[in-house]
Design a protein around this nucleic acid. Structure first.
Lengths: 121, 121
DNA sequence: GAACTATATTGACATTCATCGAATTAGCGA
DNA sequence: TCGCTAATTCGATGAATGTCAATATAGTTC
């Protein structure tokens, strides 16, 4: 278990939109690490399937949905878990994954646009 | 100008939270490409500075804020532009960047958590 | 305990990526 | 036109990453 989870919020406020205040280098590194977890087509789809499942979902139900090997799915799930986006539990032979909405909500807030932000348009 | 902008929304609905409906492979690739643009500490900080500037901002004001070279900043800005997150205009000797809030809002919606979604916690 | 299934880990490999220095383009002013 | 500054593009390089086959671990069933 190489649990090297991403620490976030350690630099203070974790829930302020970036259009509200610029990130310092430390916060940017933390945020980028979580975005990186979603920056792969397989992982983003995995995340969306797990998040929309409405309930925990078995790895055995996830794997056949993809064209990549089992070990690759396992690898991607670990990345999502290290990013704090999902968690899992072994129950018998099977392993079940569920979403951690807090981390997703955090990213969502980071990217939220207060009202009429942005000068350009 | 290698403008290979990321097409999104081409697969239909672009503004549905992933906790609401799972992404198909095409949508996942489009979304992952935009997240990838934010999956770097320098780029995420650049994005936050540009988004929080309240107005367009000159590259000459961005570069000294980072420990990387000018060409590297230029490279990262191009990635953000190709992702549709910012746009720019040359005015005289200088080039000014501003945020495109729509794309940020799209990502924010993707990650938004309706209410009490997520089975686990 | 042996055989079997479901996941995870390991090790290797090809590709992608962040970064830099050097060269290039764009515009200003003398 | 010549020099100067701002920004981008080019080419190269070392590091990170996605993938798979092989192996290992966890658990069930006989």
């Amino acid at each position: 278990m190489s649990k090297q989870e991403i620490a976030f919020g350690s630099s203070g406020g974790c829930c302020r939109p970036i259009s509200d205040a610029a990130l310092d280098p430390v916060a940017a590194s933390e945020g980028a690490a979580v975005f990186k977890a979603l920056a792969d087509p397989v992982r983003l789809r995995l995340m969306s399937i797990i998040a929309s499942a409405g309930d925990e979902i078995c790895v055995c139900d996830l794997t056949p949905l993809f064209d990549v090997s089992g070990p690759t799915i396992s690898h991607h799930l670990r990345v999502l878990r290290d990013a704090g986006l999902v968690d899992c539990e072994r129950r018998g032979t099977w392993v079940y994954y569920w979403p951690l909405p807090e981390r997703m909500a955090w990213l969502s807030t980071l990217l939220s646009v207060p009202a009429g932000a942005g000068a350009g348009n």
